[in-house]
Design a protein around this nucleic acid. Structure first.
Lengths: 114, 114
DNA sequence: AGCAAATCTAACAAAAAAGTAAGTATAATA
DNA sequence: TATTATACTTACTTTTTTGTTAGATTTGCT
């Protein structure tokens, strides 16, 4: 599917699919949403989804940042420290994501988060 | 990601991703939900998403049927007639999908359905 | 006889996504 | 001096997804 097509640019469903309908984005969003402080570092996120490679986590984070769903704060220290958190835009999406998750818990058997 | 992993089988997010987080499933679900009769034929669906190949539409429909979100009714006539509609399970999911779509309309610019 | 209709399936090719392993940077610490 | 810590990136391979084209089916119409 060409992302330049009119359908793509004008269809909210296709936008949703392009922005966070993939293997790892929902897990990242959920992890940030569920964390105490609302802030998580790369390694911490990785521990929450250890079947995701560093590479994939990295590119997922980039994509979410690009679409303004999460923000990335870099501390200029060694070793590096980078914190991720939901943007206001991302926060506004979470009720709907949580709706899906709750629906899934009710409709699939033997299901738990993480 | 191996679908046999424990995370996969016990995590509602991963289940959601596996069942309908792909390029075409949301469009199919939405089309069926939005149609007057709640029933659509293959060619009719295809007209609603003409940037999806027959092959992809066919496999998307199969996948949704396998996960009990849509049902498929075949009429033994020539030329063939097959009707698709949401199952009760699929219907119960739609409020959450619609939530996402409405969110997208509010948060992206110049966005319309189809 | 030949073609149209509807819903696919099959075979093959191309493109995209994902996996894996190794490497980078650099200050602090042992 | 060697190691550790963190957050990646790069190169390469493999797997998965998607695209493309052609064909199957079979009744009825021209």
């Amino acid at each position: 599917m060409k992302e330049s097509r009119v359908e793509y640019l004008t269809c909210p469903i296709r936008q949703v699919v392009a922005k966070f309908c993939d293997k790892w984005s929902l897990l990242v969003l959920y992890s940030l949403h569920a964390s105490d402080t609302g802030v998580m570092r790369f390694t911490e996120l990785h521990k929450h989804m250890d079947d995701c490679s560093q590479k994939m986590l990295s590119s997922t984070l980039k994509n979410l940042e690009k679409h303004n769903l999460i923000s990335r704060k870099v501390y200029p220290v060694v070793p590096p420290k980078v914190e991720y958190s939901l943007t206001d835009n991302g926060k506004s999406l979470m009720p709907y994501i949580m709706g899906l998750i709750v629906w899934a818990k009710e409709h699939f058997e033997d299901v738990a988060v993480h």
